[in-house]
């Protein structure tokens, strides 16, 4: 009922709008991508990890799940888990990111490669591995890349979960991961 009403209502008073604009803010030959990406990532409280740091992290936590193909670390396995509700006690999750965005430090994660979409949100701490050559300058370049990505769910993750809902005081670790480590 509503569908017909809404469509009819939209039809009843047509008006002309502007043409759909085209734009091109992609960056042709980006420079200093790594430097800029790291600066943006740090600004939103991500940690850039060296191999040592990563080893420290995995030593610190007991329940570590590694789903990254880029790093050699045997953690616990998710075998036998059938429901996302059973994933609440992961200390550290390691996954691969597709690429990073220099202007904002965000990393594109296509969760289709993960057994559960909730994983990068429910783990207490998150490490994302990306390759240095997989960086783009800005969101226009990012969406140009995503266009060919066939995902069911995909997300830009730009840091650890955070909030400033109490008196505008920034608190890291709101509902999702309390830290985000980025490993090249």
């Amino acid at each position: 009922m509503s569908r017909k009403d809404i469509l009819q209502s939209l039809e009843s008073s047509p008006f002309k709008g502007p043409a759909l604009p085209d734009f091109n803010f992609g960056v042709k030959n980006p420079t200093n991508l790594l430097e800029r990406f790291i600066a943006s990532a740090k600004a939103s409280a991500s940690h850039i990890l060296e191999t040592n740091d990563f080893n420290d992290l995995t030593a610190k936590y007991s329940r570590v799940i590694n789903l990254s193909n880029q790093i050699n670390y045997k953690g616990l396995f998710l075998d036998g888990i059938n429901s996302p509700f059973e994933l609440n006690d992961i200390d550290l999750l390691v996954i691969d990111g597709a690429f990073g965005v220099a202007e904002n430090g965000a990393i594109w994660v296509n969760t289709d490669v993960l057994p559960f979409r909730v994983l990068p949100f429910i783990a207490e701490h998150l490490v994302i591995c990306i390759k240095k050559e997989n960086l783009v300058a800005n969101m226009h370049d990012a969406y140009a890349k995503i266009q060919s990505d066939d995902y069911g769910f995909g997300v830009f993750i730009a840091g650890p979960s955070k909030t400033a809902d109490i008196e505008q005081s920034l608190v890291i670790g709101a509902q999702g991961p309390r830290s985000l480590g980025i490993l090249f």
Binding site: S44, F156, S161
Partner: peptide
């Protein structure tokens, strides 16, 4: 909105899991 370059999560919900 807040002066962040992007929100921490920008989630693209496409297909049903």
């Amino acid at each position: 909105a807040t002066g962040q370059p992007i929100t921490i999560y920008t989630s693209h919900h496409k297909k049903t899991a």
